[in-house]
């Protein structure tokens, strides 16, 4: 076969020549989101956290399905710190109220504060971060400094000071808590959005879109933001957990939700009176809080892995 010395040629049938650059048509089309979803579905971390969150949502929306005992009625001091009895599986609080019922009914307040705060933070943070990152210039400088100021203030400490203002002391409600949390937490979201937008804004496809005649703002909305969404979604999921803890902390300190609203933070504060005699009263709301936060953080982790561009093929 090798007529000429050391000039080797492989038999042609071993490596038939393929058409240059043929399009593969054997698989179903895959968008980034369907690809991420496919990856998510296979992760146990995601399945567990998603099931937990689903369960929590059902509990928050329909607490009546899980307990027939109204949370604030029928509290009898005679039952104070009483152990579990039939119909009252977790026992009674210091005030003689049913612990199980209070934990079930507290879900709603915790989740709604968390979700509402995340929505507010998303609206404020993404808008400001995207504009600052995309347009740059003085707007960016001003917003970056403003963000730095808020950034230097840890969430809880800042909230402690703000809630000392007379207005907040007199008008405690879900909305004031949401307001305080959003006010202090948007800079982080803005910062992440800004970073993601800066990364995408110089991509060729953004320039290409502008060369096609898409306006500068149009390119931001149509091309830059959708591609910057992944870190935003991840942070939003993680922050949901953080905000629920913040609400509980503030309520525990008596500056969050008013006593009239059932929440895990209020329950933990109330259980403090019996911490030495029957610590399990504090255990139940604390466990509910921990499971909720844990499931959101697990969800955030799973979503981060699924959306990681490095794990994407080609």
């Amino acid at each position: 076969m090798t007529s000429n010395n050391s000039h080797f040629v492989a038999p042609i049938d071993e490596t038939p020549l393929l058409a240059t650059d043929a399009v593969k048509t054997d698989q179903a089309p895959l968008s980034l989101w369907s690809d991420a979803w496919r990856k998510l579905r296979r992760r146990p971390l995601f399945i567990i956290s998603a099931l937990l969150i689903l369960a929590l949502t059902v509990v928050a929306l329909f607490p009546g399905l899980f307990t027939s005992v109204p949370p604030n009625e029928g509290c009898e001091l005679a039952n104070s710190e009483g152990g579990p009895t039939a119909g009252h599986p977790f026992g009674f609080t210091f005030q003689g109220c049913d612990v199980y019922s209070r934990v079930i009914h507290g879900t709603q307040a915790s989740l709604s504060v968390g979700i509402l705060s995340v929505l507010c933070v998303l609206v404020i943070g993404v808008t400001i971060g995207a504009l600052a990152g995309y347009y740059g210039g003085w707007l960016d400088s001003v917003l970056a400094r403003l963000g730095d100021i808020f950034f230097a203030l840890p969430l809880i400490l800042g909230a402690l000071v703000i809630t000392q203002l007379p207005f907040f002391r007199e008008n405690k409600s879900v909305w004031t808590v949401v307001f305080v949390i959003s006010l202090l937490a948007w800079p982080q979201m803005a910062r992440i959005t800004r970073g993601a937008v800066i990364e995408v804004r110089n991509a060729d496809f953004v320039t290409a879109a502008q060369a096609l005649g898409v306006s500068k703002f149009g390119a931001l909305v149509r091309h830059v933001l959708p591609n910057a969404l992944a870190p935003i979604i991840v942070l939003a999921t993680l922050e949901l957990g953080v905000f629920i803890v913040a609400e509980a902390t503030l309520s525990f300190l008596g500056i969050g939700l008013p006593q009239s609203i059932m929440s895990w933070g209020n329950d933990i504060a109330g259980a403090q009176a019996s911490i030495r005699t029957s610590p399990e009263i504090m255990l139940y709301p604390a466990a509910a809080l921990s499971i909720t936060v844990l499931s959101f953080i697990m969800l955030g982790d799973a979503v981060r892995d699924a959306l990681d561009p490095k794990s994407r093929q080609r």
Binding site: T249, F252, L253
Partner: peptide, 25 residues
């Protein structure tokens, strides 16, 4: 930072967090 207030408050640890907790109450 926020954690110190809660833990020191609940377990009555004599620290800055506890002081802050008392002041908030």
């Amino acid at each position: 930072m926020g954690g110190a207030i809660v833990t020191e408050g609940i377990f009555n640890v004599p620290g800055v967090g506890n002081k802050l907790y008392q002041a908030v109450l």
